[in-house]
Simulated assay, not measured.
Amino acid sequence: MIGFLHGIMGFFSWNDGISSWNDGDHDFDVSGWICAALCRGVKEIDLKLNNLGDVSPVFFTCHSLVNLKLDGVGSLDELGSNIEVPSDVFLGNLKTFYIRNSKFVGDSINRLISNCHVLEDLAFIGCDVANASELNIQSPSLKKLALSNFYSLDHVMVINAPNLVYFQYSGEIVEVHPLSNMKSLEKAELRIWFQSSDDEIQDCDYETSVAHLIQGICNVRSLSFSLEVEISSQLPVFHNLIELEF
């Protein structure tokens, strides 16, 4: 087991896949350590636990956090953690948020994003949205966004990030609303494929979603693009493109 707590205003890291353990003489609760770090004004947390849902609600109202990385320790077939974000969530100084192998329940994910007012770098990797119809990413401060390998396709993706500089989408396509005009976008990486059934593909209307996604990034200067599905619609003109990897 590996855990680190550096300084009163420093860095907390836990990488073990468990939230508590017993050494025969003492019981240890990792959530208590996390709360102690939060109360002491920690600025950066890197946390890897089997059940991130056990984390105290205080975790989502910490004003000192600047960088946050969470890993729910899932597998190829199963997500590791269910996360329900409390209604009073507010991470006022959070600039970087990476999360892996976790499922957000209900409106948790949208509530979290909308209450990170200075967020600049956001990544969801191997995550899922449960009991929610929409993944809504609206953030004027956001500069980098990575969305990779969502487990389900039964939600709509809405992105409004006018100051986005870097955008990555990797995985099966979900239903995408037309993206806002990303005039600041400099680099985009798209890797789109399908492994779902024909019924799921039809329900998703993947061609329209792919078109919306590509149209939204047409101002990009550097594009890495891989599309493992056929589309009949014409691609937009990329007037600013100077670098293409296909």
Rank of each mutant, 00 (worst) to 15 (best):
F167Y: 13
E172Y: 13
I18E: 06
E78Q: 09
A36Y: 14
F12K: 02
I201V: 07
M157H: 02
F90S: 13
F104Y: 15
F12C: 10
L235N: 09
F4V: 09
G92R: 08
L122C: 13
L122R: 03
N131V: 01
F124H: 02
L227Q: 12
I113C: 08
A188I: 02
D203L: 12
H6T: 06
L122M: 14
M9Q: 12
S114D: 05
F12W: 02
S232I: 12
N101A: 11
S31Q: 08
E200F: 03
S180W: 00
K43Y: 10
V58I: 09
C127W: 08
R100N: 12
I99K: 01
V55W: 06
G41S: 10
S108K: 10
G17V: 02
S56E: 08
A161P: 03
A211V: 14
A37D: 03
S87P: 00
I137L: 09
L213Y: 09
G10H: 04
Y166W: 13
Q234N: 13
E230C: 10
L213H: 06
C218A: 11
M9A: 05
V165I: 14
F167T: 03
F238N: 03
K43A: 09
G53F: 02
E245Q: 14
A161V: 03
R111E: 08
L142C: 06
L241E: 07
G80N: 07
V176R: 05
S141A: 12
G171P: 05
L227Y: 11
P86L: 07
C39K: 15
L47C: 13
L70Q: 02
S139G: 10
G216Q: 04
M9R: 13
E243P: 01
